Deep mutational scan, measured.
Amino acid sequence: GATAVSEWTEYKTADGKTYYYNNRTLESTWEKPQELK
């Protein structure tokens, strides 16, 4: 079936920290989303 993983994109900030952005909800988070675990 369809999965929600594709909504999240992993980015890195200029200082090398990783964060996650959800293209559907426009939410961003420092925590790894449940969908990616």
Rank of each mutant, 00 (worst) to 15 (best):
T13L: 05
K12W: 05
L36A: 06
W8Q: 00
T13I: 03
Q34L: 14
N22I: 01
T25F: 02
S6W: 10
A2Q: 14
E10M: 09
G1Q: 14
A2H: 13
N23K: 11
A14H: 10
T25G: 01
S6C: 15
E7M: 05
T9G: 06
E35M: 05
S6N: 11
Y20H: 01
L26R: 13
K32H: 04
Y21P: 00
T3E: 13
G16F: 02
E27G: 03
G16V: 00
A4C: 14
E31L: 08
G16E: 02
W8P: 00
A4Q: 13
T13P: 01
A14P: 12
Y21G: 01
E31R: 05
T25Y: 02
K12F: 08
T29G: 03
S6M: 10
E27S: 04
K12P: 02
V5Y: 14
E27Y: 04
S6G: 11
A4W: 12
T9E: 09
T3V: 11
G16D: 03
L26F: 14
R24K: 12
W8A: 00
T25M: 01
A4T: 14
Q34G: 10
Y21F: 15
L26S: 11
K32W: 04
E31P: 02
E10R: 04
V5C: 15
S28P: 03
T25K: 01
E35V: 06
A14N: 08
K32V: 10
K32P: 07
G1A: 14
Y20V: 00
K37L: 15
T13M: 06
N23T: 13
T18Q: 03
K17A: 06
D15G: 07
K12L: 10
E35S: 10
N22T: 00
K32G: 03
K12N: 04
D15A: 07
A4N: 12
T9Q: 11
Y20W: 15
T9V: 15
R24C: 14
K32I: 10
T29A: 06
K37Y: 14
T9P: 00
V5I: 14
T3C: 15
L26N: 15
T18P: 05
T9I: 14
L36G: 06
E27R: 04
G1I: 14
T18N: 04
E27F: 04
K32E: 07
K32L: 09
T29D: 02
A4G: 12
K12T: 11
E7Y: 06
G1T: 14
L36Y: 12
E35D: 10
Y20A: 00
K32M: 12
Y21L: 09
E7R: 03
Q34P: 15
E7W: 08
G1K: 07
L36K: 04
E7S: 05
E35R: 03
T3A: 13
T18M: 06
L36V: 07
K37A: 15
